[in-house]
Nucleic acid binder design. Structure first.
Length: 888
RNA sequence: GCCCGGGUGGCGGAAUGGCAGACGCGUCGGUCUCAAAAACCGAUACCGAAAGGCGUGUGGGUUCAAGUCCCACCCCGGGUACCA
């Protein structure tokens, strides 16, 4: 017997596999296709345990699918644009491409050392012009479809990375990459209009039956659809204000007053059949709680609301209001994110008219209103909204109860009250839940709340008077894709002084990144004259190239399509090929991409579908988000913390197969994992033990140590029978576990089969087995089954045994998955627990096919002492499990 | 605050409403050995000498039977956050 020596076997077989091309796709095959994909890595250099886990899970799935008879596409590539390469290049006075390609080579070697079965002929590298030219092409197509916009707005700016960031890349007010506090800046940037797809991106989450609930939930929250209404409030002209400073005031006929337009909004257009009026200034709000409109006692604008200065200019309120506007600019995103929510506000001296009842309400500016959600203005209903409530308390604004639960002490008094009789409450918090409307004119008595009859009635009334309508707001913002960095995909646009911003013509793609750039000396694309200077493709005049590059997430939004046709030089991919392979049957990656990459990819897929290039709606049919690998204290591993575990040392000691098996065995794939090396040796021992058993079953164990080690006399035939049963049971169990991604219990089941094999080998000498033809065949079948079951998990171990010990032709990875017979998995006799009132009192052996009556009788007999003198009320027989005898 | 997960031996973790703790690690005992390692065998939730009792975050409930279902609550992790 050759001892198990993974360090010799693994590199040798890796070469054999590479030479055989067995992991490459055969496009001609008529087998059903299956696309198994792991998220491609950033080429950061060394691989870590997170990679090992992610790619081991994917490899097991791919190898298993292949054994199940699928034509499997299992590619790998690199998400190769991005800041770390650029930063490293600056530090080391080298070029990002050099750093990147060196790291790719290193990672590729590590992946090969792990025995991952990738089709290396299909590798996609995002910084390769052959790939990124098609990213530019897609950009132009989005532009054609009106999904690209260049506009000025407040954006997230990371001072350390010296670039802007998308909303999704700001984590708790900090940069997702370097954790620097993010600043707000007003800049002109490029956007993908992902919000055009907001509804579909939300609604189609329901189709994704194979996605984890938590990921769908996160995306739904991020998209954040709110159904409500927009309501128009008319600004009272300054000269019409009669009761300055009193805050909330009683009914007014402001609507009929002559009003002058201020600079806040476009004048509201009046319908033709009305008497022409002077234009009025309208401020629109978005609300999900139009039912509470009668409780609106003030009105609030965000500090960034346009035109605030004009509103207060030259009034006694100007100083205070503008001070607040300035102060709120200084509050960083980090401070906001940390929940420092002390509200600050200032009165503008102005009033608006509440359309539902004509009341004048004072207009405030306050920092608790978000400028870029809804309209940046809100109607404040302190009795029904906690934020408004807190603000009202702080600034002594009235809190009028207009919605109550029926058990409120005020309810009996107000339940039929249409007019306002109570204008102040002593509540400790707002009442935001569903309730009954009171003091609300004709709506009194209706149920109020989100999507309530009261809300519907009020919106209907607003629509009839032309002061509001149903509308939907999203939390999702357009995707800011421009980056002021070199190492990315250049945006194919040209700025012409005469023609404006024009697209680079398709035939001029790719816009190549210049290689001769000295980043360390501070050179950027913008200062690189050779790159920036160009001629306008429309007028031929001198022009300048766009010098921003695209967010790296644009590269990862379609790479999985490219894998289906990676060498196409006429299109990003051939539609027929993409449609044949996609959607991806099984996608595997980290939960950290729950929103970012997975949302952007869904968006790209829908756009390409609308372009007629794809015939499906969603890119990833099944998604497995593997849990994070953390250190023993539960901390995430990172270079900065110095707690990164490198797999190389473990591979050098135990081999890749043991590392693969161990990381699968430690926990279910979707759970976080606290890394500990304690059990790794155990898995290595298991591979060794099983290795010896295979030799023994193959009749090649030179000494009969396993038999000799047996101490307990056992019935040799009984152990064989038990092993046959176990073999069928375990194949069924492992097959089932693989289907549900329960790799840890699959391995446990194989261990059980190995344990039963041990019992058998101890009870049957090698000599006696060799002498019996039936046993020789039986042994060979058991060995074959064990090797095949282990093949996806420990591919080198299995292939070595398959070819060298079992003497089979070809690779085990080309073999069919073992089948099983449920009939043979059944036991003849089963042990049942006998309970009395739910407590186990005895055990009985019964024939597996025994009639219920016989089982009951045997059970009663077994516990006759325990139930003596008691009345047996019931005896419940659960076949194959237990008998529960209920006594009084 | 809201939305997801999750709480089971010394540890990682198993359990379609049906014997809680599969499988492994660790520990203890044993075989082999001059000895040790390796290998192999056995034990191992807790309390108790035993009979037995008691056990899946807490408190209730449904059920012949609850880790699993229902109600209330506590704790931990993740996401999100003045989103009107």
């Amino acid at each position: 017997m050759k001892p198990y020596n993974p360090l010799e076997i693994e590199p040798r077989l890796q070469k054999v596999w590479a030479a055989s091309g067995q992991d490459c796709v055969d496009e001609e095959s008529d087998k059903p296709r299956r696309y198994v994909l792991e998220m491609f890595p950033y080429p950061s250099g060394d691989i870590h345990m997170g990679h090992v886990r992610n790619y081991t899970i994917g490899d097991v799935m791919a190898r298993y699918a292949k054994m199940c008879g699928f034509n499997v596409l299992h590619p790998m590539g690199w998400d190769a644009f991005g800041l770390p390469a650029e930063n490293a290049a600056i530090k080391n006075h080298t070029h990002p491409a050099k750093w990147t390609y060196e790291n790719i080579a290193k990672q590729k070697a590590s992946f090969q050392r792990m025995g991952f079965s990738y089709d290396w002929d299909r590798t996609v590298v995002a910084c390769d012009p052959e790939y990124y030219r098609w990213g530019q092409w897609i950009f132009l197509k989005l532009w054609e479809r009106g999904l690209v916009e260049r506009r000025n707005s407040p954006v997230n700016w990371c001072p350390d990375c010296a670039t802007v960031l998308a909303n999704e890349q700001v984590i708790e007010g900090k940069c997702w990459r370097c954790a620097s506090p993010v600043e707000k800046r007003d800049l002109t940037q490029w956007y993908f209009k992902i919000t055009d797809y907001a509804d579909e991106l939300l609604d189609d989450l329901e189709q994704l039956k194979g996605w984890p609930e938590r990921v769908k939930q996160q995306q739904a929250n991020w998209i954040g659809r709110s159904e409500g209404a927009s309501v128009d409030f008319v600004l009272v002209p300054s000269e019409k204000i009669s009761q300055v400073g009193e805050g909330f005031c009683g009914a007014s006929d402001g609507l009929d007053d002559e009003a002058k337009c201020t600079s806040l909004h476009e004048p509201k257009s009046e319908s033709a059949d009305e008497v022409p009026q002077k234009p009025e200034t309208v401020i629109t709000v978005f609300t999900t709680r139009a039912d509470t409109l009668f409780g609106c006692t003030f009105f609030v604008l965000a500090p960034e609301y346009p035109g605030i200065h004009e509103l207060v200019h030259g009034t006694p309120y100007e100083e205070e209001v503008m001070a607040l506007v300035e102060a709120s600019k200084q509050v960083s995103a980090v401070e906001r994110a940390q929940g420092n929510h002390e509200k600050h506000g200032a009165f503008t001296g102005r009033y608006v008219i509440n359309p539902i009842n004509g009341e004048q309400v004072p207009v405030w500016v306050a920092d608790y209103v978000v400028a870029d959600y809804g309209t940046g203005a809100v109607m404040a209903v302190p009795c029904g909204d906690q934020r408004d409530f807190e603000f009202a308390r702080k600034y002594h604004l009235p809190i009028v109860p207009i919605i109550l639960p029926e058990d409120d002490p005020l309810y009996p008094q107000l339940k039929d009250e249409q007019n306002r009789v109570v204008t102040e409450v002593d509540w400790e918090a707002a009442y935001a839940a569903e309730g009954i409307l009171v003091q609300s004119g004709p709506y009194t008595g209706l149920v109020g709340g989100k999507h309530s009859p009261g809300e519907e009635a009020v919106v209907k009334a607003l629509e009839e008077m032309g002061r509001g309508h149903r509308t939907v707001e999203f939390r999702l913002r357009d995707w800011l894709i421009s980056r002021q960095r070199y190492w990315g995909n250049p945006i194919p646009a040209i700025h012409c002084p005469t023609c404006g911003v024009v697209p680079v013509p398709e035939e001029d793609l790719p816009v190549l990144l210049p290689e001769n750039i000295d980043l360390a000396a501070g050179e950027t694309l913008a200062t690189h004259e050779e790159f920036a200077k160009c001629t306008c493709p429309v007028c031929g005049g001198p022009a300048r190239r766009e010098t921003d590059t695209m967010d790296t997430f644009t590269c990862s939004s379609w790479y999985y399509m490219r894998y289906t046709d990676p060498h196409n030089d006429r299109a990003p991919f051939d539609s027929a090929k993409a449609n044949a392979w996609m959607p991806v049957d099984q996608y595997i990656g980290g939960i950290e991409h729950a929103i970012l990459h997975l949302l952007y990819s869904r968006f790209f897929t829908k756009v390409l579908r609308d372009m007629g290039m794809l015939d499906f709606d969603e890119p990833f049919e099944n998604l497995l988000c593997q849990g994070m690998v953390k250190d023993e204290h539960g901390e995430t591993m990172s270079k900065s913390k110095g707690n990164v575990i490198a797999p190389e040392d473990m591979i050098a000691e135990y081999g890749a197969d043991a590392v693969r098996a161990y990381i699968l065995f430690m926990a279910p794939p979707d759970k976080d994992l606290l890394w500990s090396e304690d059990g790794l040796a155990g898995l290595y021992k298991f591979l060794n033990r099983l290795w010896r058993q295979i030799y023994d079953l193959a009749g090649q164990a030179e000494d009969d140590t396993l038999f000799q080690a047996g101490r307990k006399p056992a019935d040799a035939q009984a152990t064989q029978k038990a092993l046959l049963r176990q073999r069928h049971r375990v194949v069924g169990k492992v097959t089932d576990d693989f289907a549900r991604n329960n790799f840890n219990t699959a391995i446990a089941a194989i261990m059980e089969l190995s344990n039963t094999t041990g019992d058998y080998l101890r009870a049957n000498s090698a000599e006696s087995r060799a002498a019996n033809e039936d046993l020789r065949a039986f042994d060979a079948e058991i060995a074959e089954t064990l090797v095949k079951l282990m093949a996806p998990i420990a591919p080198h171990w299995a292939d070595e045994l398959w070819q060298s010990v079992l003497g089979r032709d070809g690779s085990v990875h080309e073999q069919p998955w073992p089948t099983w017979d449920p009939e043979l998995a059944k036991a003849d006799e089963v042990e049942l627990a006998v309970q009395v009132n739910g407590k186990v009192k005895a055990r009985i052996m019964v024939d597996a096919e025994a009639a219920e009556e016989d089982v009951r009788a045997q059970a009663l007999e077994a516990v006759s002492q325990a139930i003596e003198g008691k009345e047996v009320r019931k005896a419940i027989v659960v076949p194959g499990r237990l008998v529960n005898i209920v006594v009084g």
